[in-house]
Design a protein around this nucleic acid. Structure first.
Length: 230
DNA sequence: GCGACAG
DNA sequence: ATCTTGTCGC
């Protein structure tokens, strides 16, 4: 699989690469049983243009914390809708390799195949790492869906070009839904089931929430070193 | 040309 | 994502 690839691409080249890699994504049920779940997130320190990658692992299905890794890097690629992985994935891959015990499944903050070229961050990362990944985003990137009931656990298919690419999922009563889609070595049904089994008392599944909090803590520490003078 | 647009 | 104050509902 495409492991150490060249991340120094123009937006045009990045889109072309996505079209080449997307067919390599495998859609299949997640492992019926596995021991370690991972979750990842990125923080951004604007004043120093630095990315903070956080990777957290937990026992599965108990979700007891196991290990965390953090990596700081300079942001080399801008945020462009549809090209998020070219900004975040390089640093996340390094954070993954710093883990003593890699997870068997990884939850990612962003889309999987619910992407214009079917290669969102979770899918791209899954190919790079060679493990099952699931995308869990707070906003929709593309695709359409019908009415979503307001009770916790309600879901409706996310459809792109006539295909079901994910599910719009109500993780808490009366709050905005989250957008779940398979990354790599996963499918829509098992991806939603995994996220459903990670829910605590908040909208964001617990493992991702933990990764996000750690990333925010580290980002604030960096910002304190790079104050904005006026 | 106009609107949409993960983090 | 980050920045940023008060404010509104479960």
């Amino acid at each position: 699989m495409p492991d150490e690839q060249n991340w120094d691409l123009s937006p045009r080249e990045a889109r072309a690469l996505q079209c080449e890699l997307a067919p390599r994504v495998l859609l299949q049920p997640l492992p019926r049983s596995f021991a370690i779940l991972g979750a990842s997130d990125i923080g951004y320190a604007r004043t120093s243009n630095q990315l903070v990658a956080v990777m957290v692992t937990f026992t599965w299905p108990e979700l007891q914390p196991l290990e965390t890794s953090q990596v700081i890097s300079s942001a080399l690629f801008p945020y462009i809708p549809g090209l998020l992985s070219f900004r975040e994935a390089p640093t996340l891959v390094v954070a993954f390799r710093k883990l003593k015990t890699p997870p068997h499944v990884l939850l990612c903050d962003g889309q999987g195949i619910a992407h214009p070229r079917r290669l969102g961050l979770a899918s791209h990362l899954g190919l790079c790492l060679g493990i099952p990944t699931v995308g869990c985003a707070k906003k929709r990137l593309c695709g359409e869906h019908g009415l979503l009931l307001s009770h916790r656990g309600a879901s409706t298919p996310l459809i792109l070009n006539g295909e079901v690419v994910g599910s719009v999922f109500r993780s808490r009563e009366g709050v905005k839904p989250i957008y779940i889609s398979p990354g790599h070595l996963a499918d829509v049904e098992s991806s939603q089931a995994l996220v459903a089994d990670c829910l605590g008392r908040f909208r964001i599944p617990e493992p991702l929430r933990r990764a996000h909090n750690l990333a925010t803590d580290l980002r604030r520490a960096l910002t304190a070193q790079h104050p904005v003078f006026q």
